[in-house]
Design a binder for these strands. Structure first.
Length: 876
RNA sequence: AGGGGCGUAGCCCAGAUGGUUUAGAGCGCUGCAGUCACAUUGCAGAGGUCAUCGGUUCGAGCCCGAUCGUCCCUACCA
């Protein structure tokens, strides 16, 4: 077979992905094996693959593939999230392009559009994942709003309501005026903003010539003012006690109240109180029984209740009212000010605190469930530092606002009765039954019930994901649920630790009394190579599929992984994908070499025997280490280790050691050992780079249809006791080879020119002579008492090696080299001697440590003696 | 404002419980190498007073304190 000198990923990748799915190799069914389960963090159904997904899904695929090869029954469940706000916003935008307003549609009509959009764009992202090589069990693909998941959500809502954990009430919530829905606290992001601090004059009712000054960032809310507040301990504002003041422009008279909440140092120490539009003012209002005037409409324009500026947008009012206040001489001054403004995570607009009727979930109960397992390590976080963040949040948790004024989502199963009141039930029929049962005598019809218009927060379905995927809510005793749950690892970003991770743990303990997963691997954020977040506006976010086209999926996977230590942000650089592609090419060419060998019946050279024994040790050592690294989720280090093992040790050293001279055949024993090694290396690499490893594994020997490296088992490897000695001997031999090569490089001696190597005294690794001869192109290695004149020397350990060069030798350069080394060694020896002559060190340090220092001393002394002698000879 | 992380070669990072011959990879950099698997390569090499200062110890990159720098999370200062 004639192989191209470069690896071309395109056809290889599609071929093997097809093969894997054709043979259903990603499928999992419960059996006798130990299960290994990952549920995908469901991407937004209408989303498109970005670099963050790439990282996340690559890591999951690596873990799943590794588990599979360790003999576990690996199951990776894919799916998508309905993402209510985001998707609804997209649908609204699309309708707007067709001049359709959401308000003009019925709920049913709108949902029809939303489903159409979902069908059209939904699942694109899952198709893209296939390009990456993701080994998901596609038959299990789920959606947070499919029938099974919806049923689970509704059931859980009803259950929690019956347990008294869900309540309905009027509270101050975060209102998104663009999406026109309430949001949870977690959906609000605080952004620093350069704004202004306005100082307004509030005249005293009883003393028309005097006024108090109030500093505010939001002058447009004065129409909602129902009090002014001072701190009772504030001496400078004592004169305001018990007074009544006039709201500027508005003319309404409001009382001055006193509360220690007010910061004496801020502004003038006078606070305007607007209970309807500020969380703190709301609390003050409750405490002091103040009226509340809601001056905003749901879309952020001013309502008739404001009296002024009705119908204008809140920000337009801010500009206008500044002018009007100034004109009326009610504006004392304006200062520049920096503060933090809460913005909607989805729409980006400033949040309006708003009093409204919403559904809430009591969280204290859940926090008590979810904290202990993380603190005790039943659920492990990687990296661990997130445990602190997690604990702090749970210890300060507030109730979760779960209702959204949206249509795209799970509709709240509460049904209002004509005479007031409501019932909560799984279906309208059950609701009717319940309503009639509660209501002795009277009998309602289905048409009398009016279902709540609101939908549930998306996360109210996501938090059930690991359970609902296996029907754990609806059929808690089913075989799949019992087998796959709890899942093994969760891979996600730290940004959704509260949104999702914490809440899954809560639901897990509430509904299964067990954790939803054992380990959480937090990935970092993918940034560009100079550390900026990737964003559309910066244009620094590469298209993952274009990268795959350019470097191959394996190359991109390697590029992602190389820069991704667990939990650290990753600075993505295309150059890393290039390195990945180059590595593929390297492996490809190693394969070309090996497959090109002719095998013949001939004795195995000694050098090959030594090389095989050594590489066997390297492999067993490495596989033990790889296993350990995997257990610590240190995936980038694992990949780096395999990369070096395959590129440097295998291709650079081992293959060169056993390689027959050009055109000559190889003996069968060495050939087969080499194939075995190659296969093992491919296996270790496969989870990281699935495509090229499958391609080469299939070519390495005859495989039956349906066989695959992805389901081949990794041998159980134990570190061999003699491995360390073998490896260290070879390291010495390599140092000798490198020594000779360095002389060649220095003296410009071609590799093909045969040299001689003299060993002064005892050769530390004479058993490796055949290797040294082959690798350094040496004909004779001999032990001498005294090295010959005109040779270039180097030290390995305490032994001096010399290469006779006759006239090629440059005495001056040799002297310089020896003197530099001598200086270094003498400095070193000085340090050692200082330690050893320290009485306290010798008496306090453990014997082994002291003995080691003595060994350092004698070695250094010996080397120095050798060097001095060399110098003497050179100088004579 | 509170809490946490980090600061080790030009860049990105490793360096369990302090002691393994005066700190290790990868990328980048420098020099050399062209018919022999691979220039998407090979060989050789340069490059670090482990942020700063102080302390504990026979011994500190590692432990303690302070300082500086940097990043993140949490929070209602109008």
């Amino acid at each position: 077979m004639e192989l191209a000198s470069k690896y071309s990923p395109q056809e290889v990748e599609s071929k093997w992905y097809q093969y894997w799915t054709d043979h259903q190799l990603f499928r999992s069914k419960p059996d006798q094996r130990e299960p290994y389960t990952i549920v995908i963090p469901p991407p937004n159904v209408t989303g498109v693959l970005h670099m963050g997904h790439m990282l996340n899904e690559t890591i999951q695929d690596i873990l799943v593939r590794r588990a599979r090869m360790e003999g576990k029954n690996a199951c990776w469940v894919p799916g998508t999230d309905h993402a209510s706000i985001a998707t609804e916003a997209k649908v609204v935008n699309r309708l707007a392009e067709q001049d359709i307003k959401k308000a003009d549609l019925t709920r049913e009509e709108f949902l029809k559009h939303a489903w159409a959009w979902t069908e059209e764009h939904g699942g694109i992202i899952l198709k893209q994942l296939r390009r990456l090589g993701a080994s998901c069990d596609w038959d299990r693909t789920a959606f947070t709003m499919d029938e099974e998941r919806s049923e689970s959500v509704i059931k859980v809502f009803c259950d929690l309501y019956r347990k008294g954990l869900i309540y309905r009430g009027v509270r101050m919530v975060n209102w998104d005026p663009k999406a026109q829905t309430a949001l949870s606290d977690e959906e609000v992001i605080y952004k620093e903003e350069h704004s202004k601090l306005y100082y307004l004059r509030y005249y005293i009712e009883s003393e028309p010539e005097k006024y108090a000054i109030v500093a505010t960032t939001r002058p447009e809310t004065i129409m909602g003012d129902t009090a002014m507040c001072i701190n009772p301990n504030d001496p400078k504002n004592q004169w305001l006690r018990g007074k009544r003041v006039i709201v500027p422009l508005v003319g309404r008279v409001i009382p001055v109240i006193e509360d220690e909440y007010v910061d004496i140092e801020f502004g003038t120490g006078c606070l305007k109180v607007t209970p309807a539009h500020d969380v703190n003012d709301y609390m003050l209002g409750e405490k002091h029984h103040l009226p509340s005037i809601d001056i905003f409409n749901d879309d952020g324009t001013l309502s008739p209740a404001a009296g002024l500026y009705v119908g204008m947008d809140r920000f337009a009012v801010r500009e206008q009212i500044e002018k009007d206040l100034a004109e009326a001489q009610l504006l004392e001054k304006v200062e520049d000010y920096t503060n933090k403004v809460g913005c909607s995570e989805r729409t980006g607009v400033a949040i309006e605190p708003k009093l409204s009727m919403q559904w809430f979930l009591k969280m204290k109960h859940f926090a008590d469930l979810a904290l202990p397992p993380v603190l005790s390590g039943d659920i492990k976080f990687h990296p661990q530092k997130y445990v602190n963040t997690y604990r702090y949040w749970l210890e300060n948790i507030k109730d979760w606002c779960i209702s959204r004024q949206l249509w795209w989502g799970h509709r709240i199963p509460a049904y209002y009765l004509p005479d007031g009141g409501y019932v909560v039930a799984e279906t309208p029929e059950l609701a009717l039954q319940q309503a009639n049962a509660n209501n002795s005598g009277k009998s309602y019809q289905l048409s009398d019930l009016r279902q709540d218009e609101d939908a549930l927060d998306t996360w109210f379905s996501s938090w059930l994901w690991p359970i609902s995927l296996f029907k754990g809510i609806n059929e808690p005793n089913n075989e799949e649920f019992r087998y796959y749950y709890p899942t093994s690892d969760l891979v996600t970003g730290p940004d959704i630790i509260f949104f999702w991770v914490a809440r899954m743990i809560m639901a897990g303990y509430e509904y299964t009394s067990r954790p939803p997963f054992r380990n959480v691997y937090f990935t970092g954020i993918v940034r560009d190579k100079i550390g900026r977040k990737m964003s559309k506006s910066l244009g620094n976010s590469p298209d993952p599929l274009a990268l795959i086209d350019k470097f191959g999926a394996d190359g991109v996977r390697m590029g992602m992984l190389l820069s991704a230590p667990a939990g650290n942000d990753i600075l993505f650089d295309e150059a890393l994908c290039e390195q990945g592609r180059n590595f593929c090419n390297k492996i490809w060419n190693a394969f070309r070499l090996v497959k090109g060998w002719q095998v013949s019946d001939q004795p195995q050279p000694e050098s090959a025997q030594v090389a095989i024994r050594w590489f066997q040790s390297m492999l067993s050592d490495a596989s033990v280490e790889i296993k350990d690294l995997f257990s610590k989720y240190r995936l980038n280090e694992t990949l780096m280790l395999i990369f070096r093992l395959l590129r440097d040790e295998f291709s650079g050293w081992y293959l060169e050691m056993v390689k027959p001279s050009y055109g000559s055949p190889i003996d069968a024993a060495t050939y087969h050992a080499t194939l075995t090694f190659f296969e093992r290396l491919l296996q270790e690499l496969h989870p990281f780079m699935p495509f090229i490893t499958e391609e080469l594994w299939q070519h390495l020997s005859d495989r039956k249809d349906g066989e695959s490296i992805m389901v081949s088992l990794l041998p159980q490897e134990h570190s061999q006791p003699e491995a360390a000695a073998i490896i260290s001997e070879m390291e010495t031999a390599k140092a000798i080879i490198t020594g000779v090569r360095a002389i060649r490089a220095e003296k410009n001696i071609a590799q093909k020119q045969v040299l001689q190597l003299d060993v002064t005294g005892t050769h530390p690794v004479s058993a490796y002579n055949t290797i040294i001869q082959k690798m350094a192109n040496i004909d004779v290695i001999q032990t001498v008492d005294k090295k010959s004149d005109g040779s270039s020397t180097f030290l390995v350990g305490t032994t001096e090696f010399s290469v006779p060069l006759g006239s090629l030798i440059n005495v001056e350069a040799e002297i310089q080299k020896a003197e530099a080394e001598l200086a270094h060694l003498e400095g070193f020896l000085k340090g050692v001697l200082a330690k050893l002559s320290n009485e306290k060190f010798v008496s306090h340090a453990p014997e082994a440590v002291v003995a080691l220092e003595r060994k350092k001393q004698s070695d250094a002394e010996q080397k120095i003696a050798t060097l001095k002698e060399t110098l003497q000879n050179l100088k004579k």
